[in-house]
Design a protein around this nucleic acid. Structure first.
Length: 732
DNA sequence: GCAGGCTGTCATCGA
DNA sequence: CTTCGATGACAGCCT
């Protein structure tokens, strides 16, 4: 029962504070990485949060003194810090692919198709906001799709549950500022402007090719795409050079009830393989993208890819595929990687064809299998997900310029929804990034109120305003010392010096050392007689103990007498009693000797019953006194540790938030790349007449088997709605 | 004089 | 049963 009680007193408090700090509401594991132990560990409380680690033992075993296990759990503390540091190690522009996957999964659960939930989209995503000014005005936009990130955050913040309090306007503004900075630092909107890119391409031609590769490759790719079309000698139709084999009939059956030509083949772009001018920049971009994707453990079948790619040069296949009726949607198991540009072939499939090893799933099932089997991983997000839903809003205005990139709703909009920002701690952000100190302090107050603990206000702000390094040093120094701030009595200064760098409570240290000292040495430590904080009972003996003899020579003021008087004043009641009872050994011996030695000591003297009783009382009281001091000190340490934990966790929280922002930025860039690739691929597709497909009528869709097909937009919308409905049902 | 903090002490419990 | 440590409660003193 006692241990249980302990748990409920301090452990519960700690846990509560931790929960309130971290914000249980934010399932960062879901957003970041389900494999990351730290957050989960913290969120779930984990054993370390409850486990009582006798850190005092760790620090005082040298003294042979064992501190109560109720002491602050530094194991938890260090564990949390270590794990959080691990999370921090993921910092800096690295998007662990699993994390990306997780976020995409989240998006998937939100309904990734189309702009059905535009409000959840984040404006930092390139889809909407970054195309402002370049997309024709007549393009119908989802409300809020082109809003800035901060505004989206605002929306999200409104949705976010008030864990530690809703985001204030200042919070939102700060986030907005941060994101605007991100946007400023990141790619500009013009990247997504097709016409702008074309303009830049012209400029690039004048400039060296080595620069602005990010745009250059696109334009060059366009040229390549144009040149890749061949003219049929018999019909005069333009068509891509190569068509690989595909199970077109199955797709035909699948889409038999659908109208409109939707023939897309990997062969459409395969001629690019022969293009001598490899778009190195495109390749580079793909490699950048895939370097992220591959680390996710996604199934990258380069062999299959290469095989499919380089073996798809058969003219027969080309003829056979090309002879299909244009009105029939033909699934040629078009893997986008197969249709991709030459030098990117190793990277592309990993992005879009994680299930390339199972070509049997292609065909009809590819198009109709809207919900992938596996609920995790890339397929859940991209698999069988209408790419048009990701990149194109379903309600694209028909008057949209075909050459202009369609407006892209944010497939990752869910990243910032709900819990994304509900636990944003802007305190550190504010302080470390030049936030208004008044606002920061106010935030801090809110935080303190939420934490349920009224922490020393004079302590936290200073620590919080300090740099992270200083904070960590504070923690480390504290943990090394084991305890601080308990040496309050000047009378113990000398003793402290004797104790060296122990930095602990003087009396505590004294007793700790004396407990296992050679008892004979006690006699040579006279200063220990008056070390204790006995300011309360200095005068008590004379008043309380009537049997105590009056000190001799009160009137004489010799130096020796003064010293004696001083020592008398420093003596405790028990010491006076012991002196009065003529106890033949010091109280320290009585108190600190082990039982065996204590009994042996008693046996050496002929003591009266009163003397024995007093000795036992002295021993009991002395031990209890130390116990009380330890107990109080432990309490104080617990509070101080909790306070530091709070500060550290606040900083960790802010750090994680910043990392989250970094991740979002990386994802945004990835999305930009994917969008560009989509546009690149889509823009190079040509129908039987050699005309490009209208993005208003056709979309590229990624199937669960890794293939990418071109389907009518109406069909894509229908599938999107179906999938959305399914997910809604699943959520219920 | 009062409030709050510090300290010692007692009683009690559990190991 | 004894010993010991921990801890709540209380009281006295100090600031």
């Amino acid at each position: 029962m006692l241990s249980l009680k302990k748990y409920f007193t301090e452990g519960l408090i700690q846990f509560t504070i931790l929960l309130s700090l971290i914000g249980v509401r934010v399932d960062v594991d879901t957003y970041l990485n389900s494999h990351l132990p730290p957050l989960r560990e913290i969120f779930l409380g984990q054993s370390s949060a409850y486990t009582q680690t006798q850190f005092h033992n760790l620090r005082n075993t040298l003294d042979g003194y064992v501190i109560h296990p109720k002491s602050v759990d530094l194991d938890y503390y260090f564990t949390a810090r270590r794990l959080l540091n691990q999370v921090r190690a993921l910092d800096r522009f690295q998007v662990p692919t699993t994390e990306v996957s997780a976020w995409l999964v989240h998006r998937d659960s939100e309904g990734s198709v189309s702009g059905a939930q535009p409000s959840t989209g984040i404006a930092l995503e390139n889809g909407g906001g970054l195309q402002d000014g370049t997309v024709p005005d007549n393009v119908v936009r989802e409300s809020g799709a082109e809003q800035g990130f901060g505004e989206d955050l605002e929306d999200l913040g409104a949705v976010a549950p008030p864990m530690n309090g809703d985001l204030t306007k200042e919070d939102i503004d700060l986030i907005d500022i941060l994101w605007k900075q991100d946007i400023d630092l990141g790619a500009g909107r013009e990247i997504f402007d097709y016409s702008h890119r074309q303009k830049e391409n012209e400029v690039d031609k004048e400039l060296s090719n080595g620069e602005e590769c990010g745009d250059g490759w696109r334009s060059r790719g366009d040229d390549i795409a144009d040149r890749a079309l061949l003219v049929d000698g018999e019909t005069g139709e333009s068509f891509p050079v190569q068509f690989p084999a595909a199970d077109a009939p199955s797709l035909t059956e699948a889409l038999s009830n659908e109208s409109g030509p939707s023939v897309v083949s990997e062969g459409l772009l395969s001629p690019l393989l022969t293009e001598p001018e490899l778009p190195f920049d495109l390749e580079q971009q793909w490699q950048d993208l895939m370097s992220i994707m591959e680390t996710q453990g996604m199934e990258v079948n380069n062999m299959a890819t290469a095989e499919a790619l380089y073996s798809s040069t058969s003219g027969d296949i080309l003829a056979a595929n090309y002879s299909l009726a244009p009105s029939t949607p033909i699934n040629q198991n078009v893997s986008l990687h197969q249709a991709s540009l030459s030098s990117c072939t190793q990277d592309f499939p990993s992005l879009f064809s994680s299930e390339i090893e199972s070509p049997s799933a292609s065909g009809s099932s590819a198009l109709l299998q809207l919900v992938p089997d596996n609920s995790t991983g890339f397929n859940t997000t991209f698999g069988s997900t209408n790419l048009s839903g990701i990149f194109f809003p379903p309600q694209l205005n028909s008057t949209t310029n075909e050459t202009s990139p369609p407006e892209l709703p944010d497939p990752l909009g869910g990243l910032l929804d709900e819990a994304m920002l509900d636990e944003i701690s802007l305190m550190d952000l504010a302080i470390e990034e030049g936030f208004n100190s008044v606002q920061a302090s106010r935030l801090e107050e809110e935080f303190d109120s939420d934490s349920g603990l009224s922490l020393d206000s004079s302590h936290s702000p200073a620590s919080l305003s300090s740099s992270e390094a200083s904070s960590s040093s504070t923690s480390s120094s504290f943990s090394e010392e084991g305890a601080v701030g308990y040496n309050s009595d000047s009378e113990n200064v000398d003793f402290e010096d004797v104790e060296g760098a122990v930095g602990y409570q003087p009396e505590y240290s004294k007793f700790c050392r004396m407990s296992y000292q050679n008892p004979t040495q006690l006699q040579y430590l006279p200063y220990l007689e008056h070390v204790g904080h006995n300011h309360t009972y200095n005068m008590a003996p004379r008043t309380l103990d009537a049997d105590e003899p009056q000190p001799a020579s009160l009137g004489k003021k010799s130096a020796k007498d003064k010293q004696t008087e001083y020592l008398d004043k420093q003596m405790s009641r028990d010491e006076h009693r012991a002196r009065a009872m003529k106890i033949p050994f010091p109280n320290e011996k009585i108190i600190n000797l082990p039982v065996e030695e204590f009994n042996e000591l008693l046996s050496k003297y002929q003591l009266s019953e009163a003397q024995l009783s007093l000795i036992r009382d002295i021993r009991r009281r002395g031990k209890n006194k130390m116990a009380a001091q330890n107990c109080r000190k432990r309490k104080l340490d617990t509070i101080l540790n909790l306070e530091r934990d709070v500060e550290d966790l606040q900083r960790d929280k802010s750090k994680l938030l910043r990392e989250k922002v970094e991740f979002l930025r990386s994802i945004r860039q990835m999305k930009q790349k994917v969008q560009s690739l989509y546009q690149e691929v889509f823009g190079r597709l040509r129908d039987e007449n050699g005309q490009p497909y209208s993005p208003n009528q056709y979309v590229l869709q990624y199937a669960s088997d890794g293939s990418v097909i071109l389907i009518p937009r109406s069909l894509a919308d229908q599938q999107g709605r179906r999938q959305e409905r399914k997910q809604k049902d699943r959520r219920k």
